[in-house]
């Protein structure tokens, strides 16, 4: 499996998109650091949004392209023979590590340049990479047609990034007569992007804006337990699609 991981990494680093991915993070985060004063609340929100926008999008697209395009080559590897297990997980690890590397380098260099501490956000970005590569593998294995996969991948991205939050707002506005606090907290768990957003909200102490009426939120997210709860949910978000995807891959005709 180690061989597969290194091969995936090598293959990825020579891809021009890998460079583009890191560069776009370098440029865009530098722009944000440069224009927004780092202490400004809105600047940190833009930085967060940059991560929440690009990381899932790239991970999904890159993950599914890499999986689908390399399908014929997998025949060669499987015939060597190599186990499906090491191909699947090796590829997953290689891709995730490669994308994370590009992201961390891009954002890390620019944050060092402007000496801003974004380690927490970068850590979450890495976790998001692993999550969305998992999801892309899941989709690539359950859907047959290539064009369909890319369509669905973009849809999923749109769903998590945008539609989901719209739905939360819609629910709130439609059901505003009922107590909804628990529902909102629960809904947050079902979208990894929102979980990350919540973790940053807590860490940056934006949750102070809820005042005392956000008590329930604090109960679930506030303390160290809240952070570990969020962390646990993110790990589930990695494992669940990954294992389901592998389950399918193992039974699949290639």
């Amino acid at each position: 499996m180690k061989t597969i991981i290194f091969y995936e990494l090598k293959e990825m680093i020579r891809n021009k998109w890998w460079l583009g991915y890191g560069l776009s993070f370098f440029i865009l985060s530098s722009l944000i650091f440069h224009t927004g004063v780092t202490e400004s609340l809105r600047a940190s929100a833009s930085l967060l949004n940059l991560v929440l926008l690009l990381v899932p999008l790239f991970s999904l697209v890159f993950g599914s392209i890499s999986f689908v395009e390399n399908m014929p080559f997998q025949e060669v590897l499987l015939a060597i023979p190599t186990s499906r297990f090491s191909i699947f997980f090796g590829k997953w690890l290689g891709l995730s590590i490669g994308l994370s590397l590009s992201f961390v380098l891009g954002m890390g260099v620019s944050s060092l340049w402007y000496s801003v501490n974004v380690v927490f956000l970068m850590g979450l970005g890495v976790v998001l990479t692993f999550i969305f590569v998992s999801i892309s593998f899941l989709l690539s294995n359950f859907l047959k047609k290539k064009e369909l996969i890319f369509g669905i991948v973009l849809l999923i991205w749109l769903l998590f990034f945008l539609v989901y939050d719209v739905a939360i707002m819609a629910i709130v506005s439609l059901l505003s007569d009922y107590p909804l606090e628990k529902l909102i907290v629960l809904l947050v768990f079902f979208n990894p992007i929102d979980v990350v957003r919540t973790m940053v909200t807590i860490q940056e102490d934006l949750s102070a804006m809820m005042g005392y009426s956000g008590a329930l939120f604090y109960k679930y997210f506030g303390s160290g337990m809240g952070v570990s709860l969020c962390g646990g949910i993110l790990i589930l978000w990695i494992l669940f699609p990954l294992i389901l995807g592998y389950w399918k891959y193992k039974r699949k005709d290639l």
């Binding site: 929440l52 939360i168 709130v172 907290v185 929102d194 957003r197 919540t198 909200t201 804006m209 939120f217």
Partner: peptide
Amino acid sequence: PELTVLLG
């Protein structure tokens, strides 16, 4: 107040 998580 929980909607604060959607702030950004």
